[in-house]
Design a protein around this nucleic acid. Structure first.
Lengths: 358, 358
DNA sequence: GTTAGCACTCAACGCAAAAGAGTGCTAAAA
DNA sequence: TTTTAGCACTCTTTTGCGTTGAGTGCTAAC
């Protein structure tokens, strides 16, 4: 069964793996002879050529031009990732780097993720990304107001996920500290735990009637809360190590690079991609699998960060299609494990600052 | 006097200007004949050649190789910027873009600056940057605590500049809402208005004795405040439109581009550069003037944004040395004017949300 | 001081020959 | 039936080399 599963003989698999490995390392097409050396295949290059021709027919390989070697197709890479990948054992140095950096950088989740993306880029030599995904239904768990001047206060909101957002509010008429206190009491009583999309005009009306002559204050506050909620579920993404892309010949085509840089900057597409993923495991999108046309020559690997059953972020790596998947997977696993671990102990163990919102 | 000031004859200036203009447009070296056409100089190319030879001797021009045209040197560009620059009149369309975008994007200062940098990049076709400079001595104007659970509260701090920062605090022992209130009272009484660097151990001790048996709470809070202050004066920088750099042949040298991208990402150097500038006017750093070796082939132009006499941010543009300074200056002036204007009216006029910190 | 003319320089371009890497096929060997 | 050695063939890449052309510097005349 093992020699026939998925319709590939053991030898074909071996050859395919050798080709992909060589391609990942060198970037160029690989020929029949070159894989003889690095592999203990007891057959001649002619045999390999025959096998390669068949693998090409099956769609696993491609030939840039008639007299070049073979390059793995998207399908070939996918097969490699799914069934041929070997586990990469991180060096102690790499492990130490992960532990050290994250130990030093205990702070807000945002910062941890950014540091992790940065480290991922360093360790893998591709571009790292850190993502705070769009959350479809945030709600606000608690409000607080900070009085500054008679017509100027700050509205602070703590979301269900623990993030803190604030906005300055300047009012037309003066408002006393007592009124402000009453306002925040009202907000806490009526506008907590309700998903963003349900805070509507009727609700606002009800609030106004309850508040009596101070109603206009509620109106102002609700408007601010609206804006605040909208910002909250926008998602965020930060990129590190773009310069590393330049070392790969696949990006020496300036127009390709330009498009990819544009996509990285727009953040939209990638944010969508990551937010849409339901899975808590590592996702690998090779080339056109991502559905983002700009990324046809690239691959995106990312791992969600989960806390208390909620996806609170993601870290990932973007690089050429022929990326060193084994190493990338190991690195992301290592980092994410470390982060979730930290989020846990940070919560159990007490004594200091911990995750929080911007 | 005008024909001799700064040691350059009127004709030399005219020629230098023509060369720089042509170089900015085309990017390559410019020859003696080509500038005859676009300029009403009543002399022959031979004369121009003579003048060019002299200008080169004086250091304003350079010759890539013996049989090429001339390229303005850094000194030449500097002279051009200082004395030859013509005012660029923005098109009504450009002006409209500025007005529209900023009208739509009223929100936190951070967001306004990012939007402005983005627009600057669009309008000039170079890379835009938005900066929140390091501020040397922040102090905290007000503290507030938000009670969540017996061992979990949020500490919110409002800085002298109006920014809001918060951190989650988890404590070892339980703390009641009343104790928490007392804590924030104490913090407000003793730790406001003091520059970050002055919050020291002795002060902490004094606080602890005053608080009696609840002293440990103060200890925890002070540690958090420390971390918070440190983050506050780190400065921030965001970049937009990196991909635009790729269209300029000066960055087709991959290693140059790689270094510049690295610098843009590190943020350090540029942040330093901008934070160090005392001036409230537009600063122009051409090539090595910036002292950042990576930027020898680039130019950085930026304009601080001032509010109430304090520099609260900066917007700028990075591109090749031969950038269209006239257009960049006009664009940055336009944007910054619009932003400060908005910050003012936003403050006078009342009724809604306005600037604030993250 | 300015200009026309001319020899000279040097990157850039095009092109053809040579090199090299790799394949596909055929016919013999296992 | 599968594997292998051998060889012709195909394309890309590299190299070398004359040609082109833009642009200069210089000299001698205006």
């Amino acid at each position: 069964m093992s020699s026939e599963n998925r319709g590939l003989t053991e030898r074909k698999k071996q050859i395919l793996k050798a080709i992909v490995d060589a391609h990942i390392e060198g970037g160029g097409p690989v020929g029949s002879k070159s894989i003889l050396q690095n592999q203990q295949l007891k057959c001649s290059s002619a045999t390999i050529r025959n096998e390669m021709a068949e693998l090409e027919e099956m769609g696993y390989l491609e030939q840039p031009h008639a007299s070049a070697g073979r390059v793995p197709s998207e399908l070939g890479l996918r097969f490699y990732v799914d069934t041929l990948l070997e586990h990469y054992a991180m060096t102690t140095h790499e492990i130490a780097q992960i532990n050290n950096l994250l130990r030093a950088k205990m702070g807000e989740l945002d910062q941890i993720l950014k540091a992790a993306s940065n480290l991922a880029s360093n360790l893998t030599n591709y571009t790292g990304i850190a993502i705070k995904p769009r959350v479809s239904s945030v709600s606000i768990a608690k409000y607080e107001t900070i009085y500054l001047e008679p017509t100027h206060y700050i509205l602070v909101a703590v979301t269900s996920s623990g993030a803190v957002k604030s906005k300055h509010v300047r009012t037309e008429a003066e408002i006393t500290e007592e009124e402000l206190e009453r306002l925040s009491g009202l907000l806490n009583a009526h506008l907590t735990g309700i998903p963003a999309e349900q805070i509507t005009l009727p609700l606002l009306m009800e609030m106004e009637t309850r508040m009596g002559e101070g109603a206009w204050q509620v109106g102002v506050a609700v408007k601010v809360i609206y804006a605040l909620l909208r910002e909250l579920d926008e998602g965020e993404m930060s990129v590190s190590g773009i310069n590393r892309l330049l070392q790969y010949p696949e990006y020496s085509d300036v127009s390709h690079l330009q498009e990819l840089l544009g996509t990285l900057e727009k953040k939209e597409d990638i944010l969508d991609l990551v937010s849409r993923s339901q899975n808590d495991d590592i996702s690998i999108m090779i080339g056109s699998e991502s559905q983002v046309k700009v990324m046809n020559n690239s691959a995106l690997v990312f791992k969600p960060i989960v806390k208390d059953g909620r996806t609170v972020g993601a870290i990932g790596v973007i690089g050429p299609r022929r990326m060193d998947y084994a190493k990338v997977l190991a690195t992301l696993e290592g980092l994410s494990g470390n982060i979730t671990n930290m989020l846990e102990t940070d919560k159990q163990l007490n004594g200091g600052r911990s995750d929080g919102g911007n």
